[in-house]
């Protein structure tokens, strides 16, 4: 067996290897950029979690006939509960939709004047929901600083998204 070091027979070898390396780096960069482009395009156009109430029937993917998640603020004083069925009005951008929710008690921070997302189907002007999720804000403040301040904050939240 001959184990003596081989002479560097191909003078062009390092150059070719270099070119191959540059090629693979270039390819990797291309794949990366293309990937970012495709993923961001795909994501921006199909990953929105909900349709706002005013977009139902107007925006792509928010057609009234299909199963939707709609987002809006629960109208002040609109919540009524009767025999396990909760009804309330959901408003966004001056458009209001009545919601009927019959899957028990809405969980989380559900209350009036808070933005919520309701899963369900639009049926003859009423949204029949089977799932409610509360979308709270990124603003935090002390509880019961004064009763008036709390009431003011609530009123402001209620009028904000109308």
């Amino acid at each position: 067996m001959d184990l003596s070091p081989r002479p560097a027979s191909e003078a062009a070898a390092p150059k070719a290897r270099n070119r191959r390396k540059m090629l693979s780096i270039g390819l990797l960069l291309f794949v990366l950029l293309a990937g970012i482009l495709v993923v961001s395009k795909f994501l921006t156009q199909s990953l929105d979690y909900y349709c706002n109430v005013d977009e139902v029937g107007h925006k792509d993917g928010c057609e009234a006939g299909r199963r939707l998640r709609i987002q809006g603020v629960v109208d002040k004083g609109s919540i009524t509960t009767d025999n396990g069925v909760t009804t309330f009005n959901l408003t966004f951008n001056k458009v209001t939709v009545p919601v009927v929710y019959d899957s028990g008690e809405p969980g989380g921070l559900f209350q009036q004047c808070i933005p919520v997302v309701v899963h369900g189907v639009m049926k003859s002007g009423t949204f029949e929901g089977d799932d409610v999720e509360v979308k709270h804000s990124n603003e935090y403040d002390e509880k019961n600083k004064t009763r008036v301040a709390t009431a003011d904050a609530e009123a402001a939240a209620c009028s904000q998204s109308k």
Partner: peptide, 19 residues
């Protein structure tokens, strides 16, 4: 994207709404 999760309260913001 529109999601359920709230926006950040401190990072990359000029108005911080935090007690």
């Amino acid at each position: 994207w529109r999601g359920l999760h709230q926006d950040s309260s401190v990072a990359d913001r000029t108005n911080v709404n935090l007690h």
